[in-house]
Every structure is written in structure tokens, then in C-alpha cells.
Design a protein around this nucleic acid. Structure first.
Lengths: 227, 227
DNA sequence: TCTTTTGCAATACGACTGAAATGTAATCGG
DNA sequence: CCGATTACATTTCAGTCGTATTGCAAAAGA
């Protein structure tokens, strides 16, 4: 991940990964029989982490926040507003271009995207049901547009086309359109939401483990192969 | 371009480019002393073509269309709704990930994006001035969001996350929010707008002294058709 | 104790990479 | 007509790539 984020996917080779992890190339090959297996695993891991992080955010704040605020919280979570998430964004972007050529790999991506879209659509429906100020829009179209907007903002942020504040402002403007009024959560410090880290790591695994151990943490051997 | 679009940027090597163009690798090296020079030229060419195509669209339709319709026309132009534009989108996406590592190359990208953003903001301002139904939003934020949304839709389209129709519908829903009412242009055939081929030659160029310019402008040996 | 399997390291291999060197035919200025 | 430059083609080279092979210590099983 570090390699893909800092030097691009083209720099991701078995040797480089091994060197970055401080292990031998043979060990990488032991756990991933082919490079494609490694890449697929990495992509799956990125998606799984993101989904887990976001769903954790949902379940944690889902009962205390109104739908509009919840949606904003989620969208802020997706934006690459801090350094770890910028890394994650670069990796995702690299994989996005990668999977454009290998459509089979992108299947899971589509699936989780659909899932996310359906959830957002539900939230928008809820907002429309409870609020009188929200305009009548097809919730699925609105969810599609909102997710596309956030992804687009993220890409532009990765390319440093504008500042974090501008991106958040654009997002809020859009949410204002969608929900009829300001969905800004209580405590108008927007960056508090943007750069969260504290509420307990939702990732399993002992502290201080290296990325290799973490990658194979749940599956000690042969994460993808049949052995 | 064809290589990058169909097999990814990782398949773009001097030999592959030469083979695809039907020339020798030495000829490629003659016109581009290094691979980076070739990549930079290609990226510049993609951006220049896109900007030219879009600005041509603006000047052609700018006087007959109302701002809201003009904006929609532009956004439709950006979306990868037909095969050539899907190719272009794949190339752009690949380069986007590429330039994430080489920030110096992405400078021109930022510039043209800013330009586009300012133009859209102007149009939105015009709409807001003439229409009473349009909500009051910061035009720059609205332009930022709109462009981000279109880019995001484009990326999802490239990944086949949903159909062309869904993307256009999401775009129209957003435009409906932005402009207060339907900005759909007369002649409700949406694909007519989406699928028009740019009639102009991509570039007029006399055989210049600059080898790079010559490499892009006039095909050196055999006419490599754009098909 | 012997054999087999696991977990890794080291290395070999063929293909491919970008870049450079070399060769050669055509063009051009004088 | 002649030297210089241009426009390629061909080949070479050092290096990296993914993958396969081999080697070996430790564990497991009989």
C-alpha cells in the first residue's frame, strides 16, 4: 500500500514489496503464488477496510445522528482529508485505473459501490420523508450523484486541484441543495469530523504489527490460494 | 492512446507503441528522446484535445443555448457515453493515477481544471441572475460540485458501475437541483447530445521545427488512422 | 527415528524494459 | 560534387520483471 500510494502501482513489484516490508521476495511468493493474487488481495483489503471503517461509523453514529447528518458524516469519511486517507485514496485511484483493464477484479468494487448507493438512497428517502424542505428527487439518482460528487471531489483533492476547505464547502453546498437546509452537524467545527481518529481502532489485530502480519493476520497462510 | 486505453498504462512501452503505430522503436526514440517525454506529450495531447473539443462546443452552441442548457451540454460532453470518449476516459484515468506520483506533470491539468471551473461558475451565475427558480448557492461551490459530480459519474461509468442512462439521469437530477427546473435541451433525445462526433481535425500543424510538435501533428510515415 | 510437510531464503531463468550505440539511406547547404 | 545533417532501422546493453526451482531449518506425524 505504501508503495502504491507513494510511487504508483507501476512501482509495485514483488521485489519492491518485499524490500519495503523488510522480508525476502521468496516469502512474498510463499504467501502469494502470483502477483495478481497479491494485487487482488490488496485491493480486497483496501475495500474491506474502507467498508468496515464506514459501516463502523454508521453503526456508531447512526442512532444519534439524523439521516442528513449521517450522510454528511459518511461523505466526509470518504473524502481524503487527512494523510492516511490520502494514501488510501491514491491506492484506490491506482487500482481504479488497474481494474479498468482487468474487469474481473473490479467485480467486488461494483458490488460494494451498489451497496453503498442503496444505503445512501435509503437515508435520502428518510430525509425526504421527515423534512418538508427537501426537494423531491429520485433517491437513487440523488445517491448516485452524491457518491459521484464525493468521488470526484476526492480525485480533485488528490490532485491538489483545490483545498480541503473548498471541497468540504462544495460538498456542503450540494448537501444543502439535497436536503433543503444545512445538514451541518451540531458543533460547527467541520474539521472535527474530517480528521477523526480517536474513537477506537475498528481494525482487528494486535498493536504494532507490521503490514505483512496485518495482511495475513486473519489468514495465516495462503490467503487466496487453495494450497 | 489506444494502448493506454485498452491495456492500461503499464502496457505502454516504447516497443508496444512502435508496434501499435507500425513503426520501429528507433523512430519512436527519434521523436521522443525519453519515455517520459512521450508520456508528457501524450498527456498534453489528451488535455489539449479535450479542452479544444469542449471549447469548440461552447463557441458553437454558446449563442443558441441558454446557460443552463449550455452547462448540460458541456457536462454531457465530459461524460464517457460513447466508445471514443470511453477510451479517452480510460487514458485520462490512467494518467490521473500516473500524475499522482509525478506532480510536475499534473500542473497543466490543474490549470485547465481551474479554467473550466471558472467558466462553469460564470454560467451558473448567469442562470441564477436570469432565473428566479434557481436556489442561491455560491457559484464557485456549485461549479466545483458539478464538475466533481461529472468526473465521478465518468469514473463509475468507466467501471461499468451503472448504465449510461442512470448516469445521465443522475446528472439531470443534479442539474434540476442546481437550476430549479429541468434544463433538458429541446429535442429530448439525450443520446443525440451524447454521441456526436467532433467534426474538426484534431490539430492543424505545418511541419514544424520542433520534433515533438511534428510527432503529434503530422503522421510521419503511414497515416495512422484515428479509428 | 524417519519421513513428510511447512515456512521461508536464495538463486536461476527467460522475457521484457528504457536507453544507447551503430548503421544507412536520404536530404541539404555550399 | 561533397561534407553535414536528418530520419529512420537495427542491434546491444544493463537492469528489472514475474515466475520457477532448489535448499534448508523447523515442525508434525508415524
Amino acid at each position: 500500500m505504501r508503495l502504491a500510494a507513494t510511487q504508483g502501482l507501476e512501482a509495485v513489484s514483488l521485489r519492491h514489496v518485499a524490500a519495503e516490508a523488510g522480508v525476502s521476495t521468496g516469502m512474498v511468493q510463499h504467501y502469494f503464488r502470483t502477483k495478481d493474487e497479491m494485487m487482488t488481495f490488496a485491493l480486497d483489503m483496501v475495500m474491506r477496510d474502507a467498508v468496515q471503517r464506514i459501516t463502523a461509523e454508521v453503526t456508531a453514529a447512526g442512532r444519534v445522528l439524523k439521516p442528513a447528518e449521517l450522510v454528511r458524516t459518511l461523505m466526509i469519511q470518504i473524502l481524503p482529508l487527512d494523510e492516511p486517507r490520502r494514501l488510501e485514496g491514491h491506492v484506490t485511484l491506482a487500482f481504479l485505473a488497474y481494474t479498468a483493464v482487468k474487469p474481473a477484479i473490479a467485480e467486488g468494487l461494483r458490488e460494494s459501490a451498489d451497496q453503498m448507493r442503496a444505503f445512501i438512497a435509503d437515508q435520502i428517502r428518510a430525509v425526504q420523508a421527515t423534512t418538508g424542505t427537501a426537494p423531491r428527487i429520485d433517491p437513487v439518482h440523488a445517491a448516485t450523484g452524491l457518491l459521484a460528487l464525493v468521488d470526484g471531489l476526492g480525485i480533485h483533492l488528490l490532485g491538489r486541484h483545490y483545498s480541503d476547505e473548498q471541497a468540504v464547502a462544495a460538498l456542503d453546498a450540494h448537501l444543502g441543495l439535497l436536503f433543503g437546509s444545512t445538514p451541518a452537524p451540531p458543533g460547527d467545527d467541520r474539521h472535527d469530523l474530517a480528521r477523526q481518529d480517536p474513537p477506537g481502532q475498528n481494525r482487528p489485530g494486535p498493536p504494532g504489527d507490521n503490514p505483512v502480519a496485518r495482511a495475513g493476520g486473519t489468514t495465516p497462510d495462503r490467503p487466496a490460494g487453495t494450497g
